[in-house]
Amino acid sequence: MVKKLLLVSIVCVMFSVGTLVAAENVVIKGSTTVLPITQAALEAYMKAHPGVNISLSGGGSGEGIKGLIDRTADIATSSREIKAKEVELAKKKSVDPIAHTVAIDALIPIVHPRNKVDGLTIDQLSQIYQGKIRNWKEVGGDDLQIVVVSRDSSSGTFETWGHLVLNNAKVSPRAQMQASNGAIVQAISKNRYAIGYIGMGYLNRSVKALTVNGVQASKKTALSKEYPIARPLYMYTDGQPTGLVAGFISFVLSHAGQKLVAKEGFVPVAGEAKGSPSKKGRK
């Protein structure tokens, strides 16, 4: 009897180890904006949980959601909400995307440090990006042509900018396109004619951040919504997360995880830093 019990318990242990090993492989794909957060979080998480294997790749919000839908990713990171078309496609493949807000990202207009302009209004930014204001002297700067630098039109960052600043008006076709936040900083830091925009996490001393409607972008003003160009960042899962996926997401939302978010230059999600509640995705 004892022997039998022992045998059963051994089998049980073996089984649970087996399932654990099988489950301890998580694939994360998606937005390059969320990438630094995910990277820092998974490094810390893997250190705390040896044996866990999380793989991470960028490629963009669309790529991540695509991965979630065709089940090549367990978590999709995204800098925008899932689109209605994507939800439809997901439903067809019986995937149920659920959004978890992990941080808030503020977009900041940047110029060359030698540019005299310190701040612009949303309206001025919109006119500049539509190609209606073409010279810095029209907004209080030197008599120089404005070179508009934008993210490529399919990035989540561009989408947010287009939504919050341009109000969905078309950006001038003469605008230069750069493929990443880093490339924009690089381009602006070398060009005193240029204006660009980046996520808060990418701001460094080689460029000057502009105030928007007189408000300086900071964690405080982004959280209080005083600063007008801010957006939430998401992690999408298929259904309510379980196992390791749930563990990882609650780690990101934990105090330690949100500390990492702040360290990477993003705004932690207030209130959600303690527990692990998750928001329902847009249906």
Partner: peptide, 26 residues
């Protein structure tokens, strides 16, 4: 945009494909 001078920026086809494919909804 169709360039007007040799110092204008352009967006050749491969650049467009590479930059946008990652974000285009499947």
């Amino acid at each position: 945009a169709v360039p007007e001078s040799i110092f204008d920026s352009v967006r050749p086809m491969p650049a467009s494909i590479a930059a946008e494919m990652g974000e285009a909804p499947f």
